[in-house]
Amino acid sequence: MAEQRNGKGFPALLGAALRGVVVDDEAERRAVAAFREARDSEAQATSPRRQDDWRPGAAPRQGRGELRDQPPPGRH
């Protein structure tokens, strides 16, 4: 059986196949340029909204369909 011979399950093989896209250097440069621009901007926001908190235990309320983006609380 393939699973045994490859030492991986089907999900792992599927995941590897789907991640097999070439990462474009130019796209990376654009992303890093955007990062620098944001970093150097004085207006960069640092206060987390609910959707930005992914610390363990910070799971949001859920279970009623789609989560909606909440406006940042108390933001001026």
Partner: peptide, 13 residues
Amino acid sequence: WLEIARDLGRFRG
């Protein structure tokens, strides 16, 4: 990625 770069300061985790 533009949004990720812009909002990275907000991320916690």
